[in-house]
Measured scan of single mutants.
Amino acid sequence: YHADPSLVSFLTGLGCPNCIEYFTSQGLQSIYHLQNLTIEDLGALKIPEQYRMTIWRGLQDLK
């Protein structure tokens, strides 16, 4: 799967570019796929713990 530029820029902007593959490997290719994820969902996606809160907060800021 290839990540949408919106996803790449979002995660890169948060300092988490190495997390892109965790999302794309589950078929979550764009920022729209991420918008309703919970902190528990990020854990289920195996996002490293040190990035989960950062990503979750970033998603809240998009709403």
Score class of each variant (00 low, 15 high):
Phe23Ala: 00
Thr12Ile: 09
Gln26Trp: 03
Glu49Ser: 08
Gly58Phe: 01
Arg57Pro: 01
Trp56Ser: 11
Tyr22Thr: 09
Asp4Val: 09
Gln26Lys: 12
Glu21Ser: 10
Ala44Arg: 15
Pro48Val: 00
Leu37Thr: 09
His2Asn: 15
Tyr22Gln: 10
Gln60Leu: 10
Thr54His: 13
Met53Ile: 07
Lys63Gly: 10
Ser25Tyr: 03
Asp41Cys: 03
Gly13Arg: 11
Asn18Tyr: 05
Ser6Ala: 13
Asn18Pro: 03
Arg52Gly: 06
His2Lys: 15
Gln60Gly: 09
Ile31Pro: 09
Asp61Tyr: 05
Leu28Tyr: 08
Gly27Arg: 10
Asn36Met: 10
Glu49Phe: 03
Gly43Thr: 11
Asp41Pro: 00
Leu11Ser: 00
Leu37Glu: 01
Pro17Asn: 05
Asp41Ser: 11
Met53Asn: 11
Asp61Met: 10
Val8Trp: 14
Ser25Asp: 07
Gln35Asn: 15
Val8Phe: 09
Cys16Asp: 00
Thr24Ser: 10
Asp41Met: 04
Lys46Thr: 06
Leu45Gln: 02
Gln35Gly: 06
Gln26Cys: 08
Leu42Asp: 01
Pro17Ser: 11
Gly15Val: 01
Leu62Lys: 03
Gly13Trp: 03
Gly43Met: 12
Pro17Val: 11
Ile31Gly: 04
Asn18Thr: 07
Ser6Leu: 05
Val8Ser: 11
Gln35Phe: 05
Thr12Asn: 14
Phe10Glu: 00
Leu42Phe: 11
Asn18Gly: 13
Gly43Arg: 10
Ser30Tyr: 10
Leu62Glu: 10
Ser6Phe: 07
Arg52His: 13
Gly15Glu: 06
His33Ser: 13
Thr12Ala: 11
Ala3Glu: 15
Arg52Ile: 15
Phe23Tyr: 01
Ser9His: 03
Ser25Thr: 15
Ala44Leu: 13
Thr24Ile: 07
Glu49Val: 11
Tyr32Phe: 13
Asp61Ala: 05
Tyr32Gly: 14
Leu34Phe: 03
Leu28Met: 13
Glu21Asn: 09
Leu45His: 02
Trp56Phe: 14
Gln29Arg: 08
His2Gln: 15
Thr24Glu: 06
Asp61Gly: 12
Tyr1Glu: 11
Thr38Asn: 06
Leu59Phe: 08
Gly13Ala: 10
Gln60Cys: 06
Leu62Val: 10
Leu28Ala: 06
Ile20Ala: 08
Tyr51Leu: 06
Val8Glu: 15
Ile47Trp: 00
Asn36Gln: 12
Thr38Val: 06
Thr24Arg: 07
Ile55Gln: 02
Cys16Gln: 02
Phe10Thr: 01
Ile31Asn: 07
Leu59Ala: 08
Asp61Pro: 07
Trp56Tyr: 12
Ser6Met: 09
Gly27Cys: 02
Thr12Gln: 12
Ala44Gln: 12
Tyr22Gly: 05
Val8Ile: 08
Pro17Lys: 14
Cys16Tyr: 07
Leu42Arg: 01
Ile47Met: 06
Arg52Leu: 11
Leu45Pro: 01
Cys19Pro: 00
Leu28Val: 10
Met53Ser: 11
His33Asn: 09
Tyr32Arg: 13
Leu45Lys: 04
Gln35Pro: 04
Gln50Phe: 04
Gln60Met: 12
Leu28Cys: 12
Ala44Cys: 12
Glu40Ile: 15
Tyr1Thr: 14
Ser30Trp: 01
Arg57His: 11
Trp56Ile: 14
Leu45Met: 12
Arg52Tyr: 14
Tyr32Val: 15
Trp56Thr: 14
Thr38Ile: 03
Ala44Trp: 07
Gln60Arg: 12
Phe23Asp: 00
Ile39Thr: 05
Gly43Asp: 07
Gly13Pro: 04
Tyr22Ile: 06
Phe23His: 01
Thr24Gly: 04
Leu14Lys: 05
Asn18Ser: 06
Ser9Lys: 10
Tyr1Asn: 13
Thr54Glu: 08
Leu62Met: 12
Leu28Arg: 08
Gln35Trp: 04
Gly15Ser: 05
Thr24Asp: 04
Tyr32His: 14
Gly27Pro: 03
Leu11Lys: 01
Gly15Pro: 01
Leu28Asn: 04
Asn36Glu: 14
Leu42Gln: 02
Leu11Thr: 01
Ala44His: 10
Tyr51Ile: 05
Asn36Cys: 02
Gly15Asp: 07
Gln50Ala: 14
Leu28Asp: 03
Ile39Met: 05
Gly13Gln: 12
Pro48Ala: 07
Ser6Glu: 14
Ser25Gly: 12
Glu21His: 07
Gln50Leu: 09
Asn36Ser: 13
Leu59Gly: 02
